[in-house]
């Protein structure tokens, strides 16, 4: 579950005021809006990467407003993947686990599991240089999912991909939802993609947020 309560963020002269939203556990929500509307700023505020001026952030029912990013347990996939250029795919997948001091056997089995799931087995010993856009996004997704986060924040992960890879990644995200109870907040510009995959769509405009669409089956469940 992700919940924002009257959240305000200021970055230079740009500000978001009194943003409130709620995404129930296990749902896939899309955040849409024009370039410069503050989507990434909001995502970064949720991840703890942007200073919040007022309001509160709740993840899985716990307030995390003042917690460091490391303690929030969010898997973050930025737009360009932001892979660590000196590490192999294997090292990227194991990164969060090594930081958490997992033992070697557990780490290996988790990396193997992720690699099989995301189709990264042939790439495990490769460094990011030379990987395709789709491969980079799959590694970034695997790296973010490795420590089994409760929340996944995706910043336009599909925007730079060709149509086929886009569909493939969309299906992969669908699989992620089926395999885990992760709550996803997903920034995208693509309305049809949002309609296809989302449980709810939020639109950010002029510093205000509006919920536009809730999947009917979900509403029925509620």
């Amino acid at each position: 579950m992700i919940a924002l309560e009257n959240l305000s963020v200021r970055v230079g002269s740009f500000s978001l005021e009194n943003i409130s939203l709620e995404i129930p556990t296990g749902e896939h929500a899309f955040l849409m809006g024009k370039t410069g509307s503050g989507k990434t700023t909001l995502l970064e505020a949720i991840c703890g990467l942007k200073q919040i001026t007022s309001g509160r952030v709740f993840l899985m029912g716990q307030e995390v407003t003042r917690l460091k990013p490391a303690l929030r347990g969010i898997g973050f996939v930025p737009q360009d993947g932001a892979l660590f250029s000196t590490m192999t795919v294997r090292e990227q997948l194991a990164f969060a686990l090594a930081i958490r001091k997992w033992n070697r056997a557990d780490m290996q089995s988790r990396v193997k599991e992720l690699a099989a799931w995301l189709g990264l087995e042939p790439l495990l010993n490769r460094k990011p240089n030379g990987l395709s856009g789709g491969e980079i996004q799959r590694v970034a997704l695997g790296r973010a999912l490795a420590f089994r986060p409760d929340v996944l924040c995706l910043d336009e992960p599909l925007s730079a991909l060709d149509e086929d890879t886009r569909i493939e990644m969309g299906n992969l995200l669908q699989t992620v939802r089926e395999h885990t109870a992760v709550t996803i907040l997903h920034i995208s510009h693509n309305l049809s993609e949002a309609r296809r995959h989302s449980d709810r769509i939020f639109r950010l405009k002029d510093g205000k947020i509006r919920m536009e669409h809730v999947r009917e089956t979900r509403v029925a469940e509620v």
């Binding site: 929030r72 973050f76 930025p78 969060a96």
Partner: peptide, 23 residues
């Protein structure tokens, strides 16, 4: 961005510096 990702993955600032930025 890479440091920020490292922070969300569980790093302290110093760890992000030593493990990601410095290499």
């Amino acid at each position: 961005r890479r440091e920020q990702v490292a922070l969300t993955l569980g790093c302290r600032r110093s760890q992000a510096f030593w493990l990601v930025v410095l290499p």
